[in-house]
Nucleic acid binder design. Sequence first.
DNA 1: CCAAAACTGCACTCACGGTACGGTTTCTCC
DNA 2: GGAGAAACCGTACCGTGAGTGCAGTTTTGG
Lengths: 206, 206
Amino acid sequence: MGKGEATRERILEIAESAVLAKGFGATSIDEVIAEAGLTKSGFFYHFKDKNALAHEMLRRYVATNDQLFDEIFARGHQLSDDPLQAFLISLKLLAETMSDLPNGHPGCLIASICYQERLFDREVRELTAQSVRDWNARFRKILDGIAAVYPPREPVDLDDVADMLSCIVDGAIIMSKTLNDPSRLERQILIFRSCVKLMFAPSPLP
Amino acid sequence: MGKGEATRERILEIAESAVLAKGFGATSIDEVIAEAGLTKSGFFYHFKDKNALAHEMLRRYVATNDQLFDEIFARGHQLSDDPLQAFLISLKLLAETMSDLPNGHPGCLIASICYQERLFDREVRELTAQSVRDWNARFRKILDGIAAVYPPREPVDLDDVADMLSCIVDGAIIMSKTLNDPSRLERQILIFRSCVKLMFAPSPLP
DNA sequence: CCAAAACTGCACTCACGGTACGGTTTCTCC
DNA sequence: GGAGAAACCGTACCGTGAGTGCAGTTTTGG
C-alpha cells in the first residue's frame, strides 16, 4: 500500500465519523484536513471535490457492512442447519454486535445521505439505492429458505419482511441517537427476532 | 392572524420542504427568502438565526403529527371497543394516510435533525428527544390496554414494541426516499400490523 | 539517482450566515 | 385621519467554507 492510499484512508476515516456526527453539509474540509494533518491542496490532490469524498465514503461503508453481514449470517448457518434457527441465531449475533459498539452505532451513512440528497450527484444516490436493494435481496433469500420449511402463519409478503429489518435498524439507529440511548438498537433487533419467530415458528401443539 | 404571522408561516412552510428535500445545512436562507418573496432583513426580523428557524419548524412538525395521531387513534377507538381491534384499525388508517400522500412522505424532520445534530443547540435537540418519548409513551399506553385483554404469546417488552412503530416508520421513510418508492412506507406499517396481530391475537382454537 | 507520487504555499473567487442600521411602507387602534 | 407600532427594504459589511490554479518542494519506490 502506497503512502497516498494510507492518507486517503485516514481522510475517509476522519470524514466518516464527522459526517455521521453532524451531517455532510456541516463537516468542513478545513477541519478534516486539520485532524488529518495535511493542507487543502493535499486534500484536493486525493479527492476532486466533496462529492468524490462522499462517493468513496459510501463505498467503504457499504463494503464494511457487507462483510459484517457475511460473517454474521455465515456464523448462524454454521451453528444450525435449520434455516429458521440459523436466522434467529444470526439476529442475536447482530444485536450483540451492535450493543458491543463502545459509543453506540455511529449512524447510518445511507440515512445521512438520504436527508441530504440534493447535495450529491446521481452516481452517489444510485449507489445508496443499490446497496439497500442488495441488503433487502439478501434477507429475502434467507426468508425464502425459512418459508420453504415453515409456512408463515399470517399471509405476509416476504419482500416486506426482508425490508423490515433494514427499516428497523435504520429507525432504531435514529432513535438511539435522538434519545442518546444506544441500547435501543439492540432491543429493536431482538424485537424483530421475536416477530420472525412468531411468523414462522410452528405453534406449540396441545 | 396578523400579517407577520402569515409571513412566518410561509417561511416555515417553504423551509420545511427544502430542509426535508436536501437537509438543513444545504438549505440556504437566500433561497428561502427568494421563494417567499422577501429580503434578508425581513427574514431576520422574524427569526434571529437559523437555529430559531429550526426550532419553530420542529414545533410545527411535532404539533401536526400529534394532531394526526390523535385523529387516527380516536377514529380507531370509535370503530371498535376491543383495544386490539381498535389499534389494528388505526394502523390500517395510518397506512392509508401515508399512501395517500401525493409525492410520498416528505421525510421525518426528527431524523433529518438527528443527522445534523451539531448544527443545533441543546433546546432543539431536547425538543426532538421529548417528542419521540411522547410518541413512544402514547403507543405504550395503547399496548398496555391490549395486553390487559390479550396476554402476548411471546415474552415481549411492551416498551420495545411501542418503540418499534416509530422505528419502522422512520426507517421506512428513509427506504422510500432512497429507493424512490413511496409504497414502502405503507407496506411497512401493514407488516408491523401483522406483527401486532401475531403477538396478541389468540391462536385459533382447534 | 531519477521520475513519479505526494504533497506545500499562496493567492484568489464565490456563496452563505450573520450583523448593523437607517429608512420606508403598512397596519391598527384611538 | 393621525400616531405609533409592526413589518418590512437597502446597503454595506465581516467571517467562514468550498473550490480553483499553479508553481514549487519533499518523499518514495524502482
